[in-house]
Design a protein around this nucleic acid. Sequence first.
RNA 1: GUAGGUAUAGCUCAGUUGGUUAGAGCAUCGGUUUGUGGUACCGAGGGUCGUGGGUUCGAGUCCCAUUACUUACCCCA
Length: 476
Amino acid sequence: MKPSIPRGTRDFGPAEMQKRQYILNIIRKNFELFAYQPIETPAMENIGTLTGKYGDEGDQLIFKILNSRIHESKNKDVLKKEFDLSLESSRNSEELTEKALRYDLTVPFARFVVMNQHNLTFPFKRYQIQPVWRADRPQKGRYREFYQCDADVIGSNSLINELDLIALMDKSFGELNIPVVLKINNRKILAGIAETIGAPDKMIDIAVAIDKVDKIGQQGVENELKEKGFTKDQIRVLYGAILVHGGSVIYGDSLRDKNNNINSLSALVNGTEFGKNETFRKGIDELAYLFNNIEVSDSKKFRVQFDATLARGLNYYTGTIFEVKTNAGTFTPSILGGGRYDDLTGIFGLPNMSGVGISFGIDRIYDVMEELNLFPENISKTASTQLLFAHFDEVTQSHCIKLAGELRKNNISCEIYPDVTKKLGKQFDYANKKNIPFVCTVGSNEMQSGVYALKNMEKGEQQQLNLTDLIEFLKK
RNA sequence: GUAGGUAUAGCUCAGUUGGUUAGAGCAUCGGUUUGUGGUACCGAGGGUCGUGGGUUCGAGUCCCAUUACUUACCCCA
């Protein structure tokens, strides 16, 4: 049988893992620095926990798990009926699939919070680093299994939490050395717009259409809106707010334009029909607060923009929404997403629990860093084995076991060439290929004298050292 | 769901208008070299050309189907 793995999934070899861990370590360190606490949840959830939270498109991308032992069911007639219905339309049948793989970390977190509400101190700040699964069609930067690194705080309405998360993003992307743009919007603004033009349930349609203005132009957006059933009048009013200001959907650009951001916000309130809508004004107020209070360490590396077209497909967002993209290179997918959800726990029976969080997508961060060549050069050498013991027979090999033990006591990473061979060349070649910088050759002479030959593989130099000196030398 | 592209050795790929026994580089193993690697030279193993059918005297090459992979749209990390 030819070995293979499901499409959209990947294996990671040692070289890739070293880079992935480099990214993970920076993010995890910052999560802890900002006082978020770790949790983990199961890979699978009961399917009812997940459905209905991600929007129609999202729900269809949930990986469902076929119930086991359906052949033992006593209700096969029901199963057959359910199966036939499932062939006709997209639906959930708990007779067939009562479990599913998690689609993100936020919804399982909300479920966790409700189940553990009496053991948690609120506001609760948690971080979670685990894989998620989506039944998407894989392509560049899009995987069916990938890691999310989430930081959320739940049980607090304060916009201080948003500022905290912005500082966390700034620091993390700064340390990863990725130049990024943080786009911010507020679902209340989108909701206010939808209410004003008399289509309160079509907020997502509006945002999705407007978001494409860069790609398909104003006319294209208009056509798409018409297709979605908007009238000419509605579209005209919409354009009044969204496109009139400089012809762009982006109002401010970076913190250096802080005033520009704020001015354009107030112009929206005072100069358009939308200003009369309370939800809209609330959204603008919240955004203005954030722009007035954002502090970032380096506004050249970390730019912040208000983007009125930023929508995000997930249903549960209600306030601030975040998205981060890199602005360098050709591969520029979103590498972080997040936002505020006012009532995600309500459906599980715990209302009035506002939360806000972000999710780093390390698989795409990896792809971006690879393209921009942002990994440190020495990354492959930093964590690898320091020394290989080469030998000639069973006697000298077993002597190496003792020596390796001594080195490991001193935290020196080393290994013994596992096969017995007289061919030193083979053993040196092995060290070479594994990037092991030192080889210690142990023959019968060395065993008797206690003085070993230590070779520096890079320089080709060799020196004679006893065990104590050997350890001292390698410790440096 | 829609539209493209690709499939030949472990890997990356050549393979001409259809024509003898399908090639190269890298990798692997052996040798030159039985206590010193990277280089060099010599040699070896490794292929039902994704699968099934068709056209033809003859198919890796042309046609049809099918599967897998891949890219873009949609949506998303």
